[in-house]
Write a protein that binds this DNA or RNA. Structure first.
Lengths: 269, 269
DNA sequence: CAAATAGTGTCTCTAAGACAATATCAC
DNA sequence: GTGATATTGTCTTAGAGACACTATTTG
């Protein structure tokens, strides 16, 4: 009887069919719009990081950042490495989303994409400043449903991408999308973004992921705006505060010079 | 400037590092214990399908069923194919769980595991009968927490496997496990099972996945037992019925010959 | 004081949990 | 009738939503 040691020394992994594997990261940020009028709080926008592809396939089209998994790293490590390479910032959260594995999803051949959600605070992004290369940019997201169809609109000051998706399947709380129109996004990245966003919304409901969009110390109003921006709803401040009180600890610090009553700063519990 | 067509004709995917990729399926069933005493309803047990490995590595140890993804199928199709090969039954639900990708998780080399939860109704399993091969069997699960440690006990009439895990991380509602003791399960399958079970429990809370454990027509008590078995809790029948009423449609049929008041049969809404 | 946001108190309504009571079968 | 499960009704309590009100700052 063959021993396990002998078996392993004879085993040639390259004799078997192997796909390529990538980690692709949908990086979200909630950012403040430029302030409109004196003393008013600014509006927030949910935005996602896209990179303009410099090489084939889909050259010059926009895609979410990502790359091939190396032999000595986990897919999570790969995702973290790729998003840091792209932004120069360590994300405050990284969470697996879906795996995309249709055999023909990439014209180069069999490439399986492990998609991730990463969350980056605006403060962190501003600290490193924009990469002048201009091949990466944040796009404001609008994601609206009309019956079984979803319209994904990604927009920055130069470019507007509009993808159309259809709900293929809704099971166990997750929505699975089929692409009707890629909106000039590379590969199946329209579906990757839509899936990530619908997962982000699920998570944002239970007061978990929303903290990662803000610096360590924050006001309750800022936290409320993050949740409202992600979920595209609005709630009454009194009720939000009652509910969130279980998840935060108050500090002795306050905002200053805002032109109205100072707000107490809180930290996450 | 090179055209995309030229680029693709020159592109050799085999020049790049590629891992092997598997789909591994944690198949759950809720089964009735043998009835103890006259007229009493039987207890239920949550059980999971394991196969005894016939070849190296981990020869003769127990593992969850799975196999390598073929070039022309998605990982979901692979998972479906593998679980049907093993059970001769199409599962009533198949849902992605986590991806396991530690470079050294398989002694044969770099193999990434995409884990899935599948749910099979006891009725369907009984219909095809047990595979005499005896290399596959259902194990009753007990999964208990003691501070940050989790004990996973898998037991059938012949074998008892006891694995120990530690909570590595709890983020975004999911628990990530580190294996302390494999309990003689192959590879990192103790963590794959633990992760799947903790996801199953999350899903079972919102009256979704529980239907897949039962045939099309079922009694509300049976449905309640499924939820109680998975979550290891007990609820008052009156409250369960009030809550579940939104998710079911009553039929005109009743159970017969149970030795007590007949129960109305329902279907899923 | 005006404008704006920060923060508190409380009323109502709904949903969850507990528990009591009734219904219906096989023997 | 007895023993068992099936099913309904209702009391109490906790939480969500709505809304009115007070507090504090800058100019």
């Amino acid at each position: 009887m063959e021993s396990e040691k002998n078996f392993l020394s004879e085993y040639k992994i390259e004799n078997y069919e192997r796909p390529s594997v990538t980690a692709d990261i949908v990086a979200f940020m909630v950012r403040n719009e430029a302030e409109k009028s004196y003393r008013k709080n600014s509006d927030n926008k949910l935005s996602v990081l896209l990179v303009k592809r410099g090489c084939h396939p889909f050259k010059n089209q926009w895609a979410v950042p990502g790359g091939f998994v190396k032999q000595n790293e986990t897919i999570e490590e790969c995702a973290l490495r790729e998003i840091i390479e792209e932004t120069n910032v360590a994300p405050s959260a990284l969470m697996p989303s879906l795996v995309f594995s249709k055999p023909d999803r990439d014209p180069r051949g069999r490439i399986i994409s492990n998609s991730f959600i990463s969350i980056i605070s605006e403060e962190a992004v501003n600290a490193v400043g924009g990469d002048d290369a201009c091949d990466a940019d944040w796009f404001d997201i609008s994601f609206t449903q009309d019956n079984n169809f979803f319209k994904l609109l990604l927009e920055n000051s130069h470019t507007k991408l509009s993808a159309l998706l259809k709900e293929k399947n809704h099971s166990f709380g997750r929505t699975y999308f089929e692409i009707i129109d890629t909106g000039m996004l590379a590969f199946d990245h329209a579906a990757i973004i839509a899936s990530a966003l619908s997962l982000l919304r699920i998570q944002a409901k239970d007061y978990d992921v929303i903290f990662d969009f803000l610096p360590e110390k924050f006001t309750l109003t800022a936290l409320q705006r993050v949740q409202e921006t992600i979920l595209n709803v609005s709630v009454l401040p009194a009720n939000f505060r009652r509910k969130i009180s279980d998840y935060v600890i108050e500090t002795n610090e306050f905002t200053v010079g805002a032109g109205h009553r100072p707000a107490k700063l809180f930290t996450r519990k």
